[in-house]
């Protein structure tokens, strides 16, 4: 028997925050919005990093600019940390729900038509998360034991006494293992983005018949360009295209 549900009481009793944090769609909005914010950061960060291909002073000046505006940088960092926290929380909470929704698996568990990127979002996301921790320790906190060189990055100074970011990056990426880790990680990041960016627009309802396909294609193309951009840095260092001026 289909029994009676209290229909009228349903509509009220939920304010906007509980809609956002409790409903599946609300959590998807949070995931999508935080994801898009992180995506914007990934692009900005890449543009900053690509200055490595110019003269060493350029990227060092950029680094010094950030240091000189530390309030803004911390503002951005707190925002990004908040986004990461929300992104991960929603990912774990939705994944738990999703797992619970299918208690018994099929004999052949590959879902039809789902792309590899879409099926591995949690895995690629988690690996990227651990990579970010490593990346922060490596280049931001500059912990010596993770960089694989017998040298602390804190000691690298430019002629005018500022931190020599250019040399740090070059020395850091001259370690083949480290460089490989970076290439793999940005590869996973971009796999994650190739599905995630389009899906975020979908989750936020920001697509339609006309520009939906454009967004999906663009998200794949941009993801690939991001991969090329990020991966080019360690590869350029390894192959000696960048960093001639830094002593071996």
């Amino acid at each position: 028997m289909i029994s009676r549900h209290d229909f009228e009481a349903d509509a009220s009793g939920m304010n906007i925050l509980s809609y956002l944090f409790k409903s599946s769609l609300g959590r998807k909005y949070i995931m999508a919005a935080s994801g898009l914010a992180l995506f914007a950061f990934v692009i900005g960060h890449l543009l900053g990093n690509l200055q490595i291909f110019l003269a060493p002073e350029v990227i060092n000046r950029y680094a010094q600019f950030l240091k000189d505006n530390i309030e803004l940088v911390w503002g951005a960092r707190i925002g990004l940390l908040g986004c990461i926290a929300l992104h991960i929380w929603t990912a774990i909470s939705l994944s738990a729900d999703n797992k619970a929704a299918r208690p018994v698996a099929y004999a052949d568990a590959t879902p039809p038509a789902a792309s590899m990127a879409s099926r591995t979002m949690l895995m690629s996301g988690l690996i990227v998360f651990f990579f970010i921790l490593y990346h922060l320790l490596h280049f931001t906190v500059q912990v010596e034991w993770v960089n694989g060189v017998e040298k602390t990055f804190h000691s690298l100074k430019t002629a005018d006494g500022h931190h020599d970011v250019y040399s740090m990056v070059v020395i850091g990426f001259r370690q083949p293992l480290v460089a490989l880790c970076y290439v793999i990680a940005v590869g996973l990041l971009c796999l994650h983005l190739s599905h995630g960016v389009g899906a975020s627009f979908q989750s936020l309802g920001l697509k339609n018949k006309a520009w939906g396909p454009v967004i999906d294609t663009a998200s794949k193309v941009v993801s690939f360009l991001i991969f090329v951009g990020y991966a080019s840095i360690p590869l350029a260092v390894l192959t000696g295209i960048v960093g001639d001026s830094v002593a071996r």
Partner: peptide, 16 residues
């Protein structure tokens, strides 16, 4: 809301 209460999972846009 009813969809959530029934215990269906969320959409991850796989297109299956």
């Amino acid at each position: 809301r009813q969809m959530d209460e029934e215990g269906f999972g969320a959409c991850t846009v796989t297109g299956s």
